[in-house]
């Protein structure tokens, strides 16, 4: 049995006619790093909310099919239990700061206070999580005095400290500058390398190409493609559907029409492109 298991999932938000997700079947193994791509409105956020239990528990609406993570099903557990199964980090770093705490250390401990972790263990876990994400030096700062990248790493640490079985990320870098983006991606990469199951909606295809194990392309609430980064990101199917495409793929595709790209497949990363052009 797969670690994350979605079977025939269809979901409609309240007061809407068209389903945001249609007949989604998805299996993710433990330790896999899966990226979700797709144009706006393709259902990436909805799928993230579904994995994290906010669909249907928070947004209500109509969910059919089954969502299973680590042997538990969303419709048989409540949201506050489910968040220990799947942790969610979303786009806006500012809105993920609880507002109830005055320092970063307290902010990260907030979740552990809520789930009743004893004080000694709480301190150890917070310190360890901060070391892992490289924000130990921010411990005594106010969460509101931080940059976007730092805030997003605090938000990420606040979720990681609760030790969820799956990390769900909904475009975690879309509101960050390049430096913040690099910092946050660095942390996510570390988590994936440590064997955490990560499912991330993301637009930055070049980064996905380098680090994800698997890419799923969503379109109009359905899974369009599912495969390795190379298979999915170089597919011609993505072309006229509004997907973001790696600039290396675009350059090579253009070069191919001019007879300058002689290899079988198209590249997705800078290295592959450089390699391919070297032999041309």
């Amino acid at each position: 049995m797969a670690f994350v298991n979605l079977t025939n999932v269809t979901y409609k938000y309240p007061l809407t006619q068209t389903p945001a997700l249609q007949n989604i079947n998805l299996r993710v193994e433990e330790g896999e790093f899966v990226a979700l791509i797709g144009p706006n409105g393709a259902g990436k956020s909805t799928l993230c909310y579904t994995l994290a239990g906010f669909v249907p528990h928070f947004f209500k609406g109509e969910l059919t099919g089954s969502v299973e993570v680590a042997g538990m099903q969303t419709n048989q557990s409540s949201l506050h239990e489910w968040v220990l199964n799947a942790g969610l980090v979303f786009q806006n770093p500012f809105n993920q700061i609880s507002g109830a705490k005055y320092t970063v250390f307290e902010e990260i401990a907030f979740g552990l206070e809520n789930i009743g972790v004893p004080r000694d263990e709480m301190k150890v876990r917070v310190e360890e999580a901060m070391r892992l994400t490289g924000i130990s030096d921010l411990a005594d700062r106010s969460p509101y005095s931080l940059s976007g990248g730092q805030q997003q790493r605090v938000a990420l640490t606040s979720i990681l400290v609760m030790q969820p079985k799956v990390l769900v990320l909904d475009e975690p870098t879309s509101q960050l500058d390049p430096i913040g983006t690099r910092e946050v991606f660095g942390v996510i990469r570390t988590m994936a390398e440590r064997g955490m199951t990560v499912i991330m909606a993301e637009h930055k295809v070049e980064w996905i190409a380098n680090f994800a194990d698997r890419v799923i392309a969503l379109h109009e609430g359905q899974i369009l493609l599912d495969g390795t980064p190379r298979e999915v990101l170089t597919s011609d199917i993505l072309l006229d559907k509004g997907f973001g495409i790696s600039r290396y793929t675009s350059v090579a595709r253009r070069a191919r029409t001019l007879g300058l790209w002689k290899r079988e497949g198209l590249p997705v990363t800078l290295e592959e492109a450089a390699e391919g052009f070297k032999n041309a």
């Binding site: 506050h80 979740g111 789930i115």
Partner: peptide, 17 residues
Amino acid sequence: IAIEARGFTSTRTKTFL
């Protein structure tokens, strides 16, 4: 959503840092 994701509505007895 953010505070729900941090278990704010958890029914366990809260502890304090």
